[in-house]
Design a protein around this nucleic acid. Structure first.
Lengths: 118, 118
DNA sequence: ATGATACTTAGGCATATGCTTAACCAATCA
DNA sequence: TGATTGGTTAAGCATATGCCTAAGTATCAT
């Protein structure tokens, strides 16, 4: 259960940039060639390609070149590791809050006292 | 609906580091003082504090100082924006795949005889 | 073959990140 | 009161990131 960190590192890092999220959002609606991904972006084509490289390295996007056009598509299962991590966290702290709730109820029943020291 | 980017930027970026995720994981089990968060980490206390600062700036962690001890705790609703973004993407591309499935079925009905298979 | 299109590679620069050590302050404790 | 504990600030450094321009390479169109 310890650290296969690097996958999550790459995924979160890839998603931490608005340009890259915009690309993923675009690709969520269907595959697109590099130039179409780059066109709306306020940067040069090479810069856009670097972002694409980060997305591919993270496994979020897959691409294939046919003729001179490289077509990119989202990799639908790529986000599952992220989801798993988040769900794990959420369930942990929900459990904690549940236990805290129980505890507070218990205190309530005790009829409370003070407890200061200082 | 476009760009409240910066929140997501900070959240994803905060989670893109194994040290910071380790801190969140630790805090998911309950609040802890800075020194306890830092102790297991292979770095100096100031370095750990910087990570903590990133987590706080992202809204993932909240902390409060009492006496000379600063106690940190997870902010349970902080991940919801991340979840929303991920869910939005997933539902988009699931819809797409559904439509693709329909389309393929249609083709199939047309009575074309070959299988594109691969 | 010539030129346009669609990407790709290379090199470079500015800023951001992650870490370190060396003080420094504030609350206990002896 | 002075030492210790817990945290904070400051300065500096090495590497990583994000962008650029310029110069390729490989199709495709004529």
């Amino acid at each position: 259960m310890l650290n296969q960190s690097t996958d999550l590192d790459r995924l979160f890092h890839a998603l931490a940039d608005p340009t890259r999220r915009a690309m993923v959002e675009r690709l969520s609606r269907g595959p697109a060639p590099v130039s179409e991904l780059a066109r709306p972006l306020p940067m040069s084509l090479p810069a856009a390609m670097q972002h694409l490289g980060v997305l591919e390295a993270a496994g979020l996007v897959r691409s294939e070149k046919v003729g001179r056009v490289r077509t990119c598509a989202v990799e639908p299962q790529a986000l599952s590791q992220v989801e798993q991590w988040i769900n794990a966290r959420r369930s942990e702290w929900e459990q904690r809050l549940d236990r805290l709730g129980e505890y507070l109820k218990t205190l309530d029943n005790e009829g409370d006292g003070n407890g200061s020291s200082d």
